[in-house]
């Protein structure tokens, strides 16, 4: 079914490196709205915002201030998406009846949530805050089939997550992130190939694009105090790096880029055969 659907061959993507202040949802969401507006003004078709942009990743306020989805924070983003006629993918801290999740939502340009994902590969330091997600999904959009995961889901040792989204037909994987480095790191390429390698592995195997927007800011609470988020968001396709955000630790920035939506020809077991032809084996993960 996915392959029969028509989609826009070229879209403009906004990678929103949002400044996230721990425990300050009002300020963070206000900046998120401004960034959505800016992306719309730059004629982006969709904008990707970071992980846990409401409260900050692993900020202790997750335990007390998380909101349901749908809820006031997601409503605010939905309203902004509707107002500016743009797709928005964003990470939020989600409270359910008895759990808190590190979640991401994809909102269409009518302001409706079309996909909700709960992070699976939660870091050990995050386990006191977030429960483990239990499903993966993709959704059809005007710019192809989109899958969503979050940050460490794309670790090389958790790359199965990306494989599954690819198996579901994802042409684009959107990954709200909160990549961190130690406070003393002060270099333009802070992650080396930590993120690029798994991104490019998936992109080149499946002919898909994986885009991650990470936050910027100083971590002021929780187990990662003393670290910071410095941007350098990534968009990677099968040919390699497509776009990269700037290095910064105190100011947000929107990086917009045009991408061609890749055509995925194989489905179902055809994918296994394609991988086999490429010499890829599940037993040699990297």
């Amino acid at each position: 079914m996915g392959m029969k659907t028509m989609f826009m061959p070229q879209v403009k993507v906004g990678m929103g490196q949002l400044l996230v202040e721990g425990g300050e949802p009002e300020r963070n969401l206000s900046r998120a709205e401004e960034m959505i507006q800016e992306a719309a003004q730059q004629h982006c078709h969709f904008v990707l915002l970071p992980e846990c942009l409401d409260l900050g990743w692993t900020h202790p306020s997750a335990k007390t201030d998380a909101q349901p989805i749908p809820g006031p924070y997601s409503d605010q983003l939905c309203e902004s998406a509707r107002k500016h006629h743009i797709y928005v993918c964003a990470g939020l801290t989600e409270r359910t009846k008895d759990q808190i999740y590190n979640s991401a939502i994809l909102i269409n340009d009518l302001g409706e949530i079309v996909l909700t994902y709960r992070k699976i590969n939660v870091l050990d330091v995050g386990l006191e805050f977030y429960a483990i997600g239990q499903s993966l999904s993709v959704v059809e959009t005007p710019f192809g089939i989109v899958g969503v995961n979050i940050c460490a889901d794309n670790y090389l040792d958790s790359i199965e997550n990306g494989h599954m989204l690819a198996r579901m037909g994802a042409q684009i994987i959107l990954s709200p992130s909160s990549w961190t480095v130690d406070f003393s790191v002060n270099e333009e390429n802070p992650y080396k190939d930590k993120w690029y390698k798994p991104f490019h592995t998936l992109a080149s195997l499946y002919n898909l694009i994986i885009i991650s927007a990470t936050s910027v800011g100083y971590i002021v609470g929780g187990p990662y105090e003393g670290k910071k988020m410095v941007g350098c968001s990534l968009a990677v396709g099968k040919e390699g790096l497509m776009a990269q955000g700037i290095y910064n630790e105190f100011a947000g920035a929107l990086v917009s880029t045009d991408i061609s939506i890749p055509v995925r020809r194989e489905r179902g077991t055809e994918i296994g055969q394609m991988l086999s032809k490429k010499g890829y084996s599940v037993y040699t993960l990297d």
């Binding site: 406070f183 003393s184 002060n186 100083y218 971590i219 002021v220 105090e225 003393g226 910071k228 630790e249 105190f250």
Partner: peptide, 12 residues
């Protein structure tokens, strides 16, 4: 521009 970041644990 070079930014020197303090260790938040110290500055706090």
């Amino acid at each position: 521009l070079q930014t020197i970041t303090s260790d938040w644990r110290e500055s706090k």
